[in-house]
Structure formats: C-alpha cells, structure tokens
C-alpha cells in the first residue's frame, strides 16, 4: 500500500500480530482497563524508533517496552498492588510461545471478519462489502447506491473503525485464555 512507510509495513507484519500478548502483559500489571492505553503508548514508542530495522525480536522488544511503561506508571501511581511490584522484580515471567497467541488459523480470522461485517449497520456493511470483498472502486459504489462519494467515504471510515475496534476486542478475548495474571488483591499505599 502506498500509504504505508517501511516502518508501518514492518509494524503491521512484525508487531501487531502479537497484540494479544502485549495486552496480556499490560493487563497483568495495570489491569484490563488500562491495558489498551498502555499498549497504544508502547506502539507509539515503537513507531517513534528511528532504527526499527535493528530490532531483532520485535515481539520481545514490545513486551519489554510494555514492561517498562508499566513500571513507570506503577511508580507514579499512589496506590499500587504490591504483588505486582513484587512480580516486576522477577520478570523472567514466561512469555508463552507466540503460537499460544497467534490466531488459530487464517480461516477463522476470516470467518470472524465476515461476521463482523455482517454485524455492521446495514448501509455501512454494504459499502464495506462492495469495496473490500467485491473490489468495487469508491466511485462505482457511489453510483450503484446513488449516494455521494463523500458518503461512501464516511461509511467506509465508520465500518473500518468498528471492525478495527472489534478485532482489538477479539485480541483481548484471546488474552483471557492465555494470561497468567495472579488473583491476589492486596493493596498498599506508597
């Protein structure tokens, strides 16, 4: 895609596929609510790297960033779950093999995507279907549905955003099965 720089393509191919692992790690430290935000911040750091080609193991690299960001946050926080702080020190926390996280098969991801499209608001789903599955150009879609090009654009944007969000939630779902989050609830003030 002409819109993607090298670093973006690399990010897509090497970093994003392990989203579930990053989320699991982040949730381990900060809880589910903050995990998304922490991972987004880690992504921003990764994309801010000047020499991404030097990164040998993107997955571990991002996990380390998540870890470090979590420590920063925890140190700033006024209330900290001390079991987390303890576990920060022993962070030879097992990183489950990538396979545990990668989507079970390409086909199941595709079935999932199809379901997501079906679940979109009707016109929105129709436009996305025409653009991406039938391969029609935006202008053709506008003509076929008798709507303006900018409306086609709005539907596409909306559909894309919804599907992207849903994929993210799907990843978060995968995390539950694989996470090794301790359940203790001890609190301490710092």
């Amino acid at each position: 895609m002409a819109w993607l720089r090298d670093i973006d393509s690399w990010f897509l191919a090497e970093v994003l596929p392990h989203a579930a692992a990053y989320l699991a790690r982040a949730a381990h430290f900060c809880g589910r609510d903050e995990a998304d935000d922490l991972v987004q911040e880690a992504y921003a750091r990764v994309l801010g790297t000047s020499d991404f080609r030097a990164i040998q193991a993107p997955r571990s690299f991002v996990l380390t960033i998540v870890h470090n960001l979590a420590i920063e946050r925890l140190r700033r926080a006024s209330v900290v779950r001390i079991d987390y702080l303890a576990s920060l020190e022993v962070l030879e926390m097992a990183d489950p093999t990538p396979d545990a996280f990668t989507v079970s098969s390409a086909r199941s991801e595709l079935t999932h995507l199809l379901k997501l499209i079906d679940a979109l608001p009707p016109q929105c789903g129709r436009v996305l279907h025409m653009r991406k599955i039938q391969g029609m150009a935006p202008a053709q879609i506008a003509e076929a549905l008798s709507i303006s090009l900018s409306t086609v654009e709005k539907h596409l944007a909306k559909g894309l955003a919804l599907v992207t969000r849903a994929r993210r939630d799907n990843n978060a779902g995968l995390e539950v099965a694989c996470s090794i989050v301790p359940n203790s609830k001890r609190l301490a003030t710092t």
């Binding site: 895609m1 993607l4 921003a44 595709l110 991406k132 391969g135 992207t164 994929r167």
Partner: peptide, 26 residues
C-alpha cells in the same frame, strides 16, 4: 504529528489488509 497517529493508522491499515484477504478466500 504524533506516533500514536501512525500506530492507529497502521492498525486500521491492518484491518484494511485483512479484508483484502477475505476477497481471496471467499
């Protein structure tokens, strides 16, 4: 303007890409 923008865009582009495959598998 912000690497967060780049990250969000890459994520959306990932969806866009995945949807391409749909066309081929269907």
């Amino acid at each position: 303007a912000d690497p967060r923008h780049a990250a969000a865009f890459a994520e959306v582009a990932g969806t866009w890409h995945a949807l391409n495959d749909l066309k081929h598998f269907k």
